[in-house]
Amino acid sequence: MATADESAAEEFAGVVARHRAQIFRFLLSSTRDVDLAETLTQDCFLKAHRHWASFRGESSAMTWLMRIAINLQKDHWRNRRMQFWRHTQTNSVDLDEASDWLPSGERSVEQKMLAREQVADVWRAVEGLSERQRTVFLLRYVEELELKEIAVATGLSEGTIKAHLSRALGRVRTEMGRKQ
């Protein structure tokens, strides 16, 4: 019995090691709040640990964890709306600060500036999306999940996901076209 528990614990530790970075990245891009993303990531794995025995492997562990993370994020915003008089301050970084992060590659100054502008355009477009559109967009273009995986993680149909992605891309195009 003890060995079964131990092996389950080891298995779960492996899941945490494999997927923690991705869950944190998704929550960070969704909230733009480092502290909140860390808290929600911890909550996500805590919840996953509690329900690990009920995970039957019908979907991948990644999509299962992503589903938990999406629900936690929804609950967080819902509670925040309900408790607006208790805590109005937000730690989200602004779009300019978020756009400053670029991979340190061999690029010229012009290329870096162009990349920064492009990232800022996408952040502005993401800012204007609805919660659901933003989730679908980030899962597709940051986490690079397939449409089927997004469908499992969000509980939406593939048709709905395509519609959301189409609108989100339209918004990105609009943001990019504004400067031209």
């Binding site: 970075a21 944190f24 960070l28 891009s29 992060w101 991979p103 340190s104 996408v122 273009y141």
Partner: peptide, 29 residues
Amino acid sequence: KGLDAQEAELRASLGNFKASVDAWSSAMM
């Protein structure tokens, strides 16, 4: 259908966006 070859800039923007979020997330982790 949405991202054809003529929309290279959009592809580049999305690629840079992903790379930016990756860099930010890795730094914070």
